[in-house]
Design a protein around this nucleic acid. Sequence first.
DNA 1: CGCCAGGGCCTCA
DNA 2: TGAGGCCATGGC
Length: 234
Amino acid sequence: MIDTRYMRIYERLLGAYGPRGWWPVTPPGETVPRYTGGPRTPRQRFEVAAGAVLTQNTAWANASRAIERLNTLGAMSPAAIRDMDERALAEAIRPAGYYNQKAKRLKILAAFFLEGGKRSRAALLALHGVGPETADSILLYAWNIPVFVIDAYTRRMFGRLGLVPESADYDEAQAAFAGNLPRSAGLYREYHALIVEHGKRACKKVPVCKKCLLKTACALYLSSGKRTSIARSG
DNA sequence: CGCCAGGGCCTCA
DNA sequence: TGAGGCCATGGC
């Protein structure tokens, strides 16, 4: 049986925060990624994929700076990244952190795009440096293929809500969403973006329950004595 | 200052 | 298969 809480939570988040316009991409002729509702051109689709690697365990603001620097260098394309010296590439993306690792991963990603790799999860996962979340981000936000992206925000929030066990692995968490939502890329895109928004505003590492519009349905809040803020270890 | 941020790989049980 | 170490910058 479908658990309608998944869709109701989505409606609540959408009503409160509005559409997020994620994933940001750089409009033609510009250099800074903006929230324009996702990629439209092949170049923008690659930018989303590159951004998915650049934002691994990294604040988006830092990943965005790296993207901006690649744009300014005229290097945000598979061919340009293939042709760039790896050390120069690493230097260009320095603000994103882990720049040596990420330079290698961008090279691999560029090669994959250049050879016209199959648009499948398995093909992406075969790339060194592309794990489940990065693969699903590319599938959903670059290619509009309906897979639900599970990230740290999603795990934290739905773990606290009591909907997805903390012990669930990636595929189990993803199955919970797939089984309780209509299969729609548009819905998945917006939902994931809203989860991130809620994770930044209220469901932080240390939760700020007084700011949470979902607290009356939250297992953590209800089990906490309904304190307005919950200490992590207290 | 220390902590955190939209992971993934490697190693070692 | 899962826990721990590693990679690194920038904001707060």
